[in-house]
Design a protein around this nucleic acid. Structure first.
Lengths: 114, 114
DNA sequence: CAGGAATATATGCATGACGGCATATATACA
DNA sequence: TGTATATATGCCGTCATGCATATATTCCTG
């Protein structure tokens, strides 16, 4: 189906696998032990992560060592960066709002505080 | 249920709403028209986005103007940043390989201009 | 070449999220 | 006060997705 970056990291299992691989490459069984997910699940998630360019494989004996690839992280960083100007600007607005504490609007009642 | 950042942005509808709000605050109906999702769906997604701190509301007459909040983006940025050393290191290796190839006599400076 | 370990894949099941409808609530305005 | 507009929410059908068991495949080792 081809997920995007967020959909890929949205799954808790995949997220844990990514975090587990932060320390460096590891074999499937190593990941299984560290993240506590069934081997079939780890393999399936690794296949997905591989298809999406999150990880790369390197055969080592009968094991297959998986490690992270930088591209998706750069892409994610680029996306957040495109919002950076916005949320940095909002910091200014916040400071501004602190100065003039009450911004008079029309007469309004108490807002429903969820 | 309480989604995390990735799970929140994983849904295409929510993602589109977030992108739609990049330009600034907008009422529910305005968002409905721009993202092509049913009003009930937009309201529900806005509630989710609000619970997770992605958006804030401001009453304006009988409308409610939604706008983005910076916190989740900062959080996401922080997460990516925690991987930055990793993928910048890989960038360096790549750049290094490039330098090896075209080994000029220039001084080597590979600081990321950020 | 046989045995076995490591990994990959197929299938069935269950859970959960999304979307749309209908309806309820809130606010403005005549 | 009554009506129109705007937004929120309960309900339900549908569908996607993940997990686990079982099976297949690959590859090392003796």
């Amino acid at each position: 189906m081809q997920l995007n970056i967020f959909q890929t990291l949205a799954d808790p299992s995949r997220f844990r696998i990514v975090e587990a691989l932060r320390g460096g490459e590891d074999a499937v069984n190593g990941i299984v032990n560290r993240v506590g997910i069934h081997q079939s699940g780890v393999s399936r998630h690794l296949r997905i992560l591989h298809e999406l360019g999150f990880v790369q494989v390197r055969p080592d004996g009968q094991k297959r060592l998986y490690s992270l690839r930088p591209e998706p992280f750069r892409e994610l960083d680029a996306w957040v960066a495109s919002y950076r100007s916005f949320w940095e600007a909002r910091l200014d607005k916040f400071a501004e709002a602190l100065n003039q504490k009450a911004k008079a609007h029309s007469t309004k009642r108490k807002e429903t505080s969820k």
